[in-house]
Each structure stands twice: as C-alpha cells, then as structure tokens.
C-alpha cells in the first residue's frame, strides 16, 4: 500500500456557534496504533466520529485507504454520496462506542453476526463460524446465547469489539472504550485491545488511560480546544512534553 491508511486534511466542525474542530490534520500509516489524549471538550471524540462520517465535516476531507469518505471526485467537483454508499464505506471501519451500544434484543451471537449478514451479505454458515471464532478471541465463548443485559460492562464491551471485528475492517476506532466501566473491569477490555494492536491492526484510540497509551501506542496525539497541540512517540509526548498545555494536562492525570 502506498498512501497512509487514514488521511485527515484540515477538518473543521462546528455545532451551532461552537467550533469543536479547528483545522485538524492527521495521517495514520497502516498497522499503526495512534492514541488520542486530551481534556474533555477538546474535540477528540468528534474527530473520531468524523473518521467514519458519523459526523459530517464542515470543511476539510477524510480519506481511508485512498478513498475519499462521503464524496466522489469527478469532473473537478466533489459529489456527495448517497446514504447507501456511505453505509458501504463504513463497513471498512470498525467503531467501538463508550456506551457499547449493543443491540439489547439480540443475543451476543446475533449482535456479532448482524452486520456481516446484512451489510456484507455473507452466507449464514460462514458468518456464524466467524462469530464463534471472534467471541472465542475476546474470551466469551460461553456467552453466545446470552443477551447483553445479562453481561457485565467489561463483557459487553468485549462483545462490541467482536462485533466491530466481524466486518474485517481495515481500521478500528475506539471512542473511550473503558470510560463507562468499573475500574476492575478496565483491564480485561484493554487486554483485548492490546492483543489486537499486536496483530498489526490499524487503530485510533481515544482514551484517558495513560498507561495503556505508553504501552501500546506507536504515536500519541495530544488535542486541546479543537487542534492537535503536540504528537510523537509515547516516550517523547508523555515523558518530555514540549507544550505547556500538554504538561498541564499530564500533571493532572498522572
């Protein structure tokens, strides 16, 4: 592959009068794990959500693996894609939510199998076998027929990760995956994400877990007030922050 897996150029996004993203550019190479840190309200979650078009950007553009997201370029113009085409683009991007957002009326297995069946139109037997394998991978083989509400938060988030993986995405996005969990359940979810990182999956993780960033990230990005303030290898950003705002943030959380 030639270009970067993720290419964000000059992303601007406002909610009403509030400008949340003020021109963010970011490149992520294939197989890289990027951890985004920053105080709440800094725009990290919004940035993540623009990457799979859950938020439409006001200015700038997003490319995944060379494909422009949400638009088609032809005749010197950008043509907005139909929702059906955007949905198709999203199947290449796995997204894990802070609040899991599992489908409560479907069993664990049905949750994992839903998207491959309906969005990728794969055959049932194949999807079923994949789902069983993925649930084993996140350590939940015995929970296939349970409903999400019968599981702990940590187990639910692991199901959500399996569900995101079921589409065999090129890229995984994590939006504060452990923020809604009790402290003793954080570890089991981070372990699953670490395993994924070790297998060379391209990932962008928004989190407050500094220890996790230090251990897993190839690159740490620090955001504040809608811009990237500083980025680099974890040792550089976390141990020798250059910018006063990074230092202020780290002194509070460490």
């Amino acid at each position: 592959m030639s270009g970067p897996m993720v290419d964000l150029r000059g992303i601007h996004k406002s909610f009403g009068a509030l400008e949340v993203l003020k021109g963010v550019s970011l490149e992520v190479e294939q197989g890289q794990v990027v951890v985004v840190l920053g105080p709440s309200g800094s725009g990290k979650s919004t940035l993540l959500r623009t990457i799979n078009h859950l938020e439409k950007v006001d200015r700038g553009h997003v490319s995944i693996d060379g494909d422009l997201l949400g638009y088609r370029r032809s005749g010197g113009k950008l043509h907005e894609l139909k929702e059906r085409e955007i949905l198709k683009q999203r199947t290449h991007i796995g997204f894990v939510f802070q609040n899991f957002n599992l489908f409560p009326h479907l069993t664990v297995l049905e949750n994992v199998a839903e998207a491959p069946l309906s969005a990728q139109r794969k055959r049932k037997a194949e999807v079923h076998a994949d789902a069983v394998r993925l649930l084993a991978r996140v350590g939940l083989s015995d929970k296939e027929n349970a409903y999400p509400r019968q599981l702990s938060g940590g187990q639910q988030q692991r199901v959500a990760i399996a569900r995101a993986l079921a589409l065999s995405p090129k890229l995984l996005l994590f939006d504060e995956p452990t923020s809604a969990l009790d402290p003793e359940l954080v570890g089991e979810v981070l372990d699953v994400i670490k395993d994924l990182a070790a297998t060379g999956t391209t990932m962008i993780v928004v989190t407050h877990e500094i220890g996790f960033a230090r251990e897993v990230a190839d690159r740490v990005v620090f955001m504040d007030e809608g811009v990237i303030v500083e980025q680099g290898p974890p040792t550089a950003v976390l141990d020798h922050p250059q910018h006063p705002r990074t230092r202020a943030f780290l002194s509070k959380v460490l």
Partner: peptide
C-alpha cells in the same frame, strides 16, 4: 429507542431498511 442504537447500526453499515426492521 436510544439514539446510540441507530448510531451503532449506522457505524456497522447496516442498510437503512434493515436498521428499521431489525434494530
């Protein structure tokens, strides 16, 4: 129905009609 359900379905690329019927 919680808005997060629709977001999750959209993030998974589930077609619109199926989102409505199944989720």
């Amino acid at each position: 129905v919680d808005h997060g359900q629709l977001e999750a379905a959209a993030a998974l690329g589930i077609p619109r009609l199926r989102q409505f019927r199944r989720i």
